[in-house]
């Protein structure tokens, strides 16, 4: 069953007087439970594709279906609700909320979902334990290393049991050891919780971990390989 279906997706950005075709007729289907990397050089359209799948950006044309929802027909509030219920994000720059502790950052998504306070706390602690941060509940982002922040970001992304986690170059700011450990953790989550992971990357290590590798160049899919597990 496909959880994401992109059909003839186009996205053009206007940079001064120049027209930049970020995505040029991209069609892509992603199955539920996939662990997929979208690779390509800078400017190939990886992040744009991820943003469009996550409902953060809107395609100029084409059709994007996420877990049965046609994104082009949804309002900003509906898209926010979709992101809250079905999509988790992991960003290159972690993007944690600076004024909240690790535990509160993870809890915040559940707060938005209306999960009761005691359950929220319990689940947030459990997920932080899973990502190896059991003794860092009360630390604020500024008191955590890059790898630890990214683990909190992953915990935040998966705590609400989303259908998809979109990770935009999650290892780009991490050393290779930390990056590998993060990928192992995400692969484990993928296997344990059957969450679909979609990465954008140009990191070879991420590409090697991926079960499927889609290559983009100049806004077009140029290769699509399934790796044997």
């Amino acid at each position: 069953m496909n959880i994401v279906e992109c059909t003839n997706v186009k996205k053009i950005y206007q940079q001064d007087k120049l027209e930049v075709r970020a995505l040029n007729d991209v069609s892509l289907s992603i199955k539920k439970g996939d662990f997929i990397a979208i690779a390509g050089p800078s400017g190939s359209g990886k992040t744009t594709l991820l943003n469009i799948i996550g409902g953060l950006d809107v395609a100029d044309s084409g059709r994007v279906l996420v877990d049965g929802n046609v994104l082009s027909t949804m309002s900003q509030t509906e898209l926010a609700t979709l992101r809250l219920r079905k999509v988790g994000f992991v960003f290159q720059a972690y993007n944690l909320i600076l004024v909240l502790s690790a535990l509160e950052n993870v809890e915040f998504v559940m707060l938005l979902q209306g999960v009761p306070s005691s359950e929220r706390r319990e689940r947030a602690k459990a997920i932080l334990d899973d990502v190896g941060l059991s003794d860092m509940y009360d630390r604020r982002p500024a008191e955590l290393s890059g790898g630890q922040q990214q683990r909190v970001a992953v915990a935040r992304a998966i705590v609400s049991n989303p259908s998809i986690v979109l990770a935009d170059e999650p290892t780009a700011n991490l050393d290779s050891k930390t990056g590998a450990s993060l990928l192992e953790m995400m692969e484990h989550m993928n296997e344990k919780k059957h969450v679909t992971f979609i990465f954008s990357t140009h990191d070879k290590m991420v590409m090697n971990y991926a079960h499927r590798l889609v290559s983009l160049r100049d806004g077009q899919v140029v290769d699509d390989q399934v790796h044997e597990r």
């Binding site: 996550g54 900003q76 926010a80 992101r83 809250l84 999509v87 994000f89 915040f108 998504v109 935040r156």
Partner: peptide
């Protein structure tokens, strides 16, 4: 930027 992140993780405009 932080507001953008909050929106990305599902915070509604309201």
């Amino acid at each position: 930027r932080e507001f953008g992140v909050l929106m990305a993780i599902g915070t509604t405009p309201w």
